[in-house]
Design a binder for these strands. Structure first.
Lengths: 235, 235
DNA sequence: GAGTGGTCTAGACCACGCA
DNA sequence: GCGTGGTCTAGACCACTCT
């Protein structure tokens, strides 16, 4: 069997076509049966691919009608699995690497429990600041276990999707995750980084991303300036 | 065909058993093949039910091992589809009806676009305050279109799940939805209701819930006190 | 009535975890 | 080696939408 399942391949194809505008907003995708014959697969497989697109909010299914293409979210779809850059569309996003990836020990207190393997391996630490429409919006602090990531600390990740890099170079995929959200008043450090003027609160998010490698999870702390943008999600 | 699909029935059964503790945390659910024979259905159908449980975060699947029962989330899983009361487990939650359901016009400005049918029908308005561990945590303002809801304004919804009532009495189910999150400083009204002392920010959420009735969506505005609790989600 | 998505059956082979 | 979940096939009937 191929490494990449059929439904995943179809998902990637359709996703790309929607994001690049080949299928316009409001138009209909080919019907499920058409997709079957086009790609030489059966309906349950097609449906599995479409389910993922629904979950991403890229299509809307109507019984008796078809799969309607939705406008890719204009605000930041951090709640979707694909990660920041691909969710918002790379064109909107600029990334500054505030702290380049470096080896470290794990912090003492952590929102999520670590596995033994993770604890023993130490972690790679990196900080980024992400801009939307040239405004600093996302400040994220990331902890990755130092497991089978040769030369990772020397890679340039400026303006690249961290997840894309992990997938391409290390065959690591994000399968899912969990997160916790709070509203907080930022400390002066965060305030400075996000260029917050007055007493504006920020969204504080702790995330754990589960990958296809057993015991390899990515932990992120995110400070989000929700003054001009919102975080959105579909469920 | 039955009104309630097989996979939905199995989902409800397993969900109930997990939440009531029949399956303990960390234990394994019966295997997919066992569930097939027990309930007289086939594997894709069983898997469809289990997919929903994974989405709710109630189980974790491991290839070669089985479906592991997870601890129901102790914090408020508002990001899951099932709604507040069922996500957190009814036992933790008390509800006060601040404003009983009443007929109204729609507000002029709204975070989501309304359908023509919704605009014409007017809306039912209600406000609730929900307690967790006897602390006011959730203040929600709800708008429902006034479509085929006889006697709804005279129903008592104290300490009941709004969604349960809609499902039982009007055959309305929540299929999914979208939401937007922000961190804001609450105004004095919200501050008073949530009994906030100092300058604590709150999570502000706009939600649109899509139902099985075409053109019938539920709109909620939520103020969430994230001082002692967090909002959590799985994706 | 024709076409769409929603649900379901009855099988199959594969990769993974564990004993 | 065996049972688990992951993927997939090749059909079927149903409810819904549109014409």
């Amino acid at each position: 069997m191929n490494a990449i399942p059929q439904y995943r391949k179809l998902y990637e194809i359709l996703r790309k076509h929607i994001l690049t505008g080949i299928y316009e907003e409001g138009s209909l995708l080919p019907s499920e049966n058409e997709l079957c014959t086009i790609h030489g697969i059966t309906r349950p497989t097609v449906r599995q691919a479409l389910d993922s697109l629904v979950k991403d909010g890229l299509i809307l299914k109507k019984q008796g009608k078809g799969s309607i293409v939705r406008k890719p979210p204009q605000n930041i779809g951090i709640l979707s699995i694909a990660g920041t850059a691909s969710a918002i569309g790379v064109r909107y996003l600029r990334t500054d690497m505030l702290k380049k990836p470096e080896l470290r020990g794990w912090p003492e207190s952590f929102a999520f429990e670590l596995t033994e393997l993770e604890k023993e391996s130490g972690c790679i630490y990196l900080e980024r600041l992400r801009y939307v429409d040239n405004l600093p919006v996302f400040y994220d602090i990331n902890h990755l276990p130092n497991i089978n990531l040769p030369r990772f600390t020397s890679r340039s990740l400026e303006n690249k999707s961290l997840f894309e890099e992990l997938r391409k170079n290390y065959q690591i995929q994000i399968l899912g995750g969990e997160q916790q959200l709070k509203a907080i008043n930022p400390d002066s450090h965060v305030k400075k980084i996000l260029k917050l003027k007055s007493e504006k609160p920020v969204l504080y998010i702790e995330r754990k991303l589960i990958t296809n490698k057993e015991g390899f999870n990515i932990y992120s702390t995110i400070y989000f300036n929700s003054e001009k943008h919102t975080i959105s999600g579909i469920f």
